[in-house]
Design a binder for these strands. Structure first.
Length: 314
DNA sequence: GAAACGTGGCC
DNA sequence: TGGCCAAGTTT
């Protein structure tokens, strides 16, 4: 959960997961849809799929016991170099070098490394390895991560009250504020589409399960036209049902993903039960808005729901 | 190596 | 207000 995500954002999700699935076996036995529903809103949904696969692997291939070496941990889904080292050091008390964004920043400053990320990663890892103590490497790693989160922050680091200030080379050089350097970022493009809010006579709305991998993989969506850089003249040809009368919802949904901005128009329509009954398939759902919380709607789709739901209220 | 992959908080 | 960045991993 903590991969690329702040502690504050994770805490309520962590509490919910631990209460609902207290053991790795319980998580392994859960349907993926339930795991994704519990993860909805946290983002990077491949993590939820990987966590679930990992629980299955530990349960089925490791007799419910996590492997105790970094190399073996790395074999598990969703566990990369950082997580493997964190588990080895924190859970198993081994001398493993834990390198996350905090550690990279602290190392770049402590040793005044001017080489930009990600080029500097191997060097920062070597430096981190050199400082890792033979005992209590897990406590040490968490201390450095907490230092990075509270004192050695990305902007305006609190060097005056840093316990490492007497040995920090960037502080001596006056470069702490500007380190670590990073390669220039690319501009994010904008994509556009039209979401189709299709209501059945009983008030249920058409939802759809996205393909199991890729963007929002396995999550539930309000069906929409394809999201394109160049919008098409008639998006309604991509609606899941051919409908004569669409009504445009005033306003738009804007959302920023990691690598593109999304602008969504919303169109509404009612369909007969007969027409609705023709839409079938494992990926099709008809759900009343009051039951949306039982499904894995990512935040971008919650924005669509909010906009569509505003019709009639004003 | 580079790109894909969510969302929210901060300044 | 828009860019930056977060306890990274996978393809």
């Amino acid at each position: 959960m903590l991969q690329q995500t702040t502690v504050a954002a994770v805490i309520p999700y962590f509490q919910k997961f631990m209460a609902r699935w207290p053991t790795v076996q319980a998580l392994a036995a859960a349907p993926i849809d339930e795991v994704l529903t519990a993860w909805a809103g946290l983002g990077y949904y491949a993590r939820a799929r990987n966590l679930h696969r990992c629980a299955k692997a530990v349960t089925e291939a490791h007799r419910g016991i996590f492997p105790a070496t970094e190399v073996a941990l790395m074999e598990l889904p969703g566990i990369g170099p950082y997580t493997a080292a964190a588990i080895a050091a924190i859970a198993f008390g081994q001398r493993a070098t834990v390198v996350d964004g905090n550690v990279e920043r602290v190392m770049a400053r402590f040793h005044n490394v001017a080489v930009p990320l990600p080029t500097a990663k191997p060097e920062l890892r070597r430096l981190a390895h050199g400082l890792t103590p033979p005992t209590r490497a897990g406590d040490y790693a968490q201390a450095v991560m907490d230092l990075g989160a509270t004192i050695c922050t990305p902007k305006s680091p609190a060097c005056a009250r840093c316990p490492l200030r007497s040995h920090c080379q960037a502080l001596t050089a006056g470069t702490a504020q500007e380190l670590p350097r990073r390669a220039a970022k690319k501009r994010v493009p904008t994509r556009r589409g039209t979401a189709f809010w299709i209501v059945r006579s009983d008030g249920a709305v058409l939802l759809r399960r996205r393909p199991p991998r890729g963007l929002l993989g396995g999550m539930i969506e309000v069906p929409s036209s394809e999201w394109r850089a160049e919008p098409i003249a008639d998006p309604f040809v991509e609606a899941p049902i051919s409908i004569r009368r669409w009504s445009a919802v005033r306003g738009r949904v804007e959302h920023t993903f990691t690598h593109f901005h999304l602008v969504l128009e919303v169109a509404m329509a009612s369909v007969s039960d007969k027409a609705a009954s023709r839409l079938k398939g494992a990926d099709i759902l008809w759900v009343r808005p009051r039951d949306f919380h039982r499904h894995a709607l990512p935040n971008v789709m919650k924005k669509v729901v909010d906009l569509a739901g505003s019709v009639g209220r004003r």
